[in-house]
Simulated assay, not measured.
Amino acid sequence: MALFPFILVKEQTSKNDQVLINHERIHLRQQAELLVLPFYVLYLLNYVINLIHYRDHNSAYLNIIFEREAFKNEADLEYPGKRKFFAFLRYF
């Protein structure tokens, strides 16, 4: 979980999972762009709208625009450094 400016993991072994850490680094960039608090407001709002639309937690979560960007690019370890500002907007 990314909680600006930290990445929090449940298990010690997760610290070595490069894809997971990269996924969370993408979220840190998103949070920084939106000055943190608006990120959480938009994240929650997008989740609630998705939950109404999909009527399923997993589908609602996976279709949050911030998660769509992070999941699509998590395996590209160079992505956070080359990511354009507000790149999550492409995932509406």
Rank of each mutant, 00 (worst) to 15 (best):
R90L: 10
N46M: 13
A60V: 02
F4A: 11
E33K: 05
D76N: 15
S14C: 00
D56K: 04
M1N: 11
L34H: 03
N63K: 09
L89F: 11
A2R: 12
L28G: 08
R90K: 13
H23T: 11
T13P: 00
F4Q: 07
L3W: 07
F88V: 02
Y79C: 04
F4S: 13
H57N: 12
I64C: 10
H53M: 12
R68W: 00
A75Y: 12
F66P: 02
G81Q: 14
L44Y: 06
A75T: 13
Y79I: 01
Y54G: 02
R90D: 15
F4W: 14
L20W: 08
F85A: 14
N16Q: 15
V48E: 06
R90H: 15
F88M: 01
N58Y: 14
F85I: 06
I49T: 10
L89D: 07
A87W: 01
G81H: 09
V36H: 08
V9W: 11
N73K: 11
E67W: 04
R55E: 06
I26E: 02
L42A: 07
K72H: 13
A70V: 01
R83P: 12
V41M: 12
E11V: 03
L3T: 09
E33L: 04
I64A: 04
A75M: 13
Y40I: 08
R90C: 01
R90F: 08
Q12I: 14
A32M: 09
N63S: 03
L45I: 13
R29W: 05
V48L: 13
E74S: 10
S59F: 11
V9P: 00
F85W: 12
I52D: 05
H57Y: 14
F92V: 03
R55W: 07
E11S: 10
E69A: 04
G81T: 06
R68Y: 00
E11F: 06
A70W: 05
L42Y: 04
A32I: 11
M1D: 14
D76M: 03
K72I: 01
A60I: 01
A87N: 00
N73G: 00
E69R: 00
H57I: 05
Y40T: 03
L35H: 14
I49N: 05
A75W: 11
E69T: 06
L34A: 11
R68H: 02
Y43H: 06
E33C: 07
K82L: 07
K82F: 10
P38M: 09
F66W: 07
L34W: 02
K82P: 03
V9R: 10
N58W: 10
Y43L: 02
N16D: 15
Y91N: 07
E11R: 15
